[in-house]
Design a protein around this nucleic acid. Sequence first.
RNA 1: GCGGGCAUGGCGGAAGUGGUAGACGCAUCAGACUUAAAAUCUGAAGUCAGUUCAUGGCGUGCCGGUUCAAGUCCGGCUGCCCGCACCA
Length: 857
Amino acid sequence: MAERYNVAATESKWQKIWEENHCFRAVTDPARPKYYALSMLPYPSGRIHMGHVRNYTLGDVVARYQRAKGFNVLHPMGWDAFGLPAENAARDSHTHPAAWTYNNIKVMKRELQSMGLSLDWEREVATCDPAYYKHQQKLFLDFLKAGLVYRNEAWANWDPVDHTVLANEQVIDGRGWRSGALVEKRLLAQWFLKITAYSEDLLSALPSLDQWPEKVRLMQENWIGKSEGAYVHFAVEGQGESLEVFTTRPDTLFGASFLAISANHPLAQKLAKKDERLAAFCEDCNRMGTSLVEVEKAEKLGYDTGVKAVHPFDPSWALPVFVANFVLIEYGTGAIFGCPAHDERDFAFAQKYKLPITPVVLPSGEDLATFKTMLEAYTGPGTAFNSRFLDGMETEQAIGAAIAKIESLGAGKGTVQYRLRDWCISRQRYWGCPIPMIKCPQCGIVPVPDRDLPVVLPEDIDISKPGNPLDHHPTWKHVSCPQCGGKAERETDTCDTFVDSSWYFVRYCSPHNTELPVDKKDVDYWLPVDQYVGGVEHAILHLLYARFFTRAMKLTGYLKIDEPFTGLFTQGMVCHESYKDDQGKWLYPEDVQKNPDGTATQISTGRPVQVGRIEVMSKSKKNVVDPSSIIQAYGADTARLFMLSDSPPERDIEWSTAGVEGAWRYVSRLWRQVTAPKIPLAPKGARADALSPEALAVRQEIHRTIESFTQDLERFHFNRAVARARELSNTLDTLEASQAGADVVLREGLEVLVRLLNPMLPHITEELWQILGGQTFLTNTDWPAADPIYLVRNTITLAVQINGKLRGTIVVEKGAASQLVEQAAMDEPNVKRTLEGKEIARVIVVPEKIVNIVVRG
RNA sequence: GCGGGCAUGGCGGAAGUGGUAGACGCAUCAGACUUAAAAUCUGAAGUCAGUUCAUGGCGUGCCGGUUCAAGUCCGGCUGCCCGCACCA
């Protein structure tokens, strides 16, 4: 009877049936409650990796579970298909970026389909498809009209390897996020999206995202970086202009001893034209990297320009103006006033350049006389002194008074500063969405009219030359101006690919609308996304951009919502041991054999292998396992179960062969439990006339499992849910034919088990459901409900402690009186023996939990 | 430097609001089935003491505190991980 489970045949059979029956097709239906389950769309790099398997398994469990609960579920998939790797691959392998990309999509789609995901493939979107980016260009133009787009000559992060500029968010430790090259500063004309228009809104809405990880909200908060302070103007002697400074501590203005400006500050640039040494100094500053190591090593260097600035509170007080390497042009105003006594960096700078150090804030409890000889800067709050009209005020009060004074003098104003910069979206690359603008010598910069959208990428490009292929293209950029009809040129920059992924989840709602980016009835129904699942590496970039885009699309009339993602789950990464041969070259795990003594050998050569650290799977370290080979060997259900077992989904997991085999063992066991039960199953729907106590206990266990398994799914405790299912399997195996009703309860238990495990193991459970006589697809079957009758326990096992140490357990009736419980505890043999000759001080009875007997001595 | 997190057997990890620490699994060992192996099934196992059993001591990174009772709460350390970083 026990046929071997034919994984490959069964899995592909059900995948085909689901597809033919359009089981996962989502239809807008305002009469039904909706649930939008979304996993981050993949970049089509070639093959799927284990990170994808984990991400999409988690997302699929959510989607299938919510479907079973009765929601109208939208669970789409698409491709983040633009980006530089396609250009690099095309150049290296003499193909076309589009061909490379679409081929990868084809391969990866097949791989994803073999996972048995409950996706609505009819809504598939590829961001490199003109049918997609046409609407993105439209959005860009709408944002332009709404004042959210501008072009500006600005200091940009230039990646010298990828030959393109990068957004601030894409510079990590001073290096390009993709190329790893040290980023340089260049002054370039770029297109910007005005994300800073929403700085305050993006920040203040964070607390409302209560279904997001605290960690991600904090990261966004820090990234937006709000700080309150004031702009202060210092008149510059002999220059006929003033220098604007941002400070969070206007209360320390009387401790000022110098001003410092960035090498890229307009005043520095102006002065450098007449001062060769200053010009050289500025150049040095720009050459200096911004990486961690360099910043720490770098000395605080300044160049005294000889120019003096006038203190706003005292016209007779002149301060020297330095150009300093530590002042950043991109934060605040690119100029600071230095107060050495109360800022560590200014303190070091003042010591080096022999500038006065005047303390003006007295820490509470300090004596004024002793405090005056400062060995280091004091940055905390205190009482103002040496500060004329501020003297005696506490820091907070002094800040307010200083701002009031500045404002009354017309020397500046109180303000709020954000670290967040506008989003530079220009990329000097081919494989991206063309920015739909035209440069006309007569009319200036003119938008492409809506009727001319999409601006389609040319196919005949020369990718072998360095630089932007669109720029080299002989004809593509030459157009006539839509306003005057004269000769004009297209913008050859393309969009940062993060633009593409900032609204794809919106497009999924109405992917086939050729006229407009969205259909109102669709987006109003489906959005926001109820549960978003993806890697924490997108905590800032993608998630912040998408939140901004949602606001911008609301402003331009497409959406009603502010926040795109109600729930966010960030899963951990998939890790594996890494291996090197005796030459120090990385080896693939499949070429490594672990020996019983803990050493390892290279299979192909028999040479010894160095076992390295357990690290995130990455191609460069070769510590990768190909999901396809696992699915072929064990099936998708096993791979999915492995991803869900053992480790909580937010934590990193280590991929191991033993772990996969453990998952496989359970899948096979489930098969055997249903197809070759130890006792013959009762017929479908049979009822038991009388239940033996054992069978009743198992039935109660079944209902408790429904309860706890469901709660675990709700809370993303998938590893615990798997453990509960295994426990139920163990319990069902204890049933024996001699126990009245065992055959009925066994059937009940197996049916419940199969239904509970369906979101995790969709194929085998669907097959087993049919074997158990299920009339509908399990995919279309409701989630089981626990019967409260069987959740009630009538006896309870209590622990009995003496002085907090466990001495025995007792079984009492539920709701038994405290005196009875206490007596039962005293009568427990081991307790009784231990208590002999001891004086009882008190007895604590916590109903349904514990009895603790406190004895003296 | 700033912000956040984590620390439990050989390993991954369980233990809503303090209340029987170690669920479930991996690896290990023993037994059953088998000519044998694989697969499967049964059982053992935190650690030390106790010949077995009963039982007891010690145990959730370290030190201290609160409590009848602490993995959980509080104070102070140590170690690891993540994010940001010359932010004025």
